[in-house]
Design a protein around this nucleic acid. Sequence first.
DNA 1: GAATCGTGGTA
DNA 2: TTACCAAGATT
Length: 370
Amino acid sequence: MITMWTDEKIHQFRKTLLNWYDQAGRKNLPWRQDQDPYHVWVSEIMLQQTQVNTVIPYYQRFMTLFPTVEALASAPEEQLLKAWEGLGYYSRVRNMQKAAQQLVTDGRVEWPQTMKELEKLKGIGPYTAAAIASIAFLEPVAAIDGNAFRVLARLFKIDADIRLPRTRQLFFEVGNQLIDPKRPGDFNQAIMDLGSSYMTAKNYDSEHSPVKAFNAAYQDGTEDFYPVKSKARPARLIHYFAVRITSPSGYLFEKRPKQGLLANFWTMPLYALTEFTEDPEADWQLAEMVTATEKRLKMDYGIQTTLKPLSEKAITHVYSHQKWQVIVLTGTLDTEVDVKRGQWQTLSEIAKKPQPKVQEKIWQHLRAHK
DNA sequence: GAATCGTGGTA
DNA sequence: TTACCAAGATT
């Protein structure tokens, strides 16, 4: 059960928080130079599950390449993915383009100005809708992100599991009672700045926090209990072969399917070992697996060649829900051949394609074992 | 509600 | 090395 503060205490909190924000807030961030909804939107999408320092150069480049909603709406997908390359969660930028196309009607951009309406746009959920509505349109709605979960959980000693979707509503209601109706955008951003400075997840410094007097968990020394968050499931281990084939025409490269992990990104052919063995956790023989891969390469691409492991040592690459162990196999063709799938590409052609981080690791691995 | 979807930083 | 965290949304 949460004990809500008195009106007097709420007013004191707003004043304390916003005074601190005016004095110490990160006003120099590139997306905080104005309240243009497009700027707020792009920054909020980029900042999802991504740290501020990572986002800054991406944001600046993106605004140069796609300065307006119209530019975003009409951009070629490959150019968008290239601009997002390395940021991760690539459906974010695909969804953003769909939303941009929703926004452009009869050649003009019409922005919905409420959280409720903003949530109807692709890729804009409750957090991002509240952030845009409060910052760009001054609607008093709480933007509940990881920072707000953590800050509010400590201020009010809320012990609901923040990993559970149903918990969001509780925090949203608490936030909506606290938010300053005159400066809703600044209030939300102040909570986030607080959550990324004095009230971080680890190594927090509640002692020097401007709102320590309001922090119930700090006041009774229980702050490392908050927020309550259940454990995530461990990532599943998957073994892969990455196949580097060269010919006089270049490297064999392939565009991934338009749905799922790394959709529409380009990689060398990848085979999960589950293609060749029932139990890839068991003690498999590398030579047998390589022979099986040669057969599949002929079936899938029409390529006949001998493959050799570049190294016994695998590349490790971790996603949120999968852990890849990738062994690189190499093969060479001396003559030009047509392929049933994929494309032959030169290095300069490849450089223009959006490639995932794991492909970059494969390139590095190849250079290291040359 | 549980799974999916990336990458970089840090203890 | 492992585990967790970082301005979440979609299916």
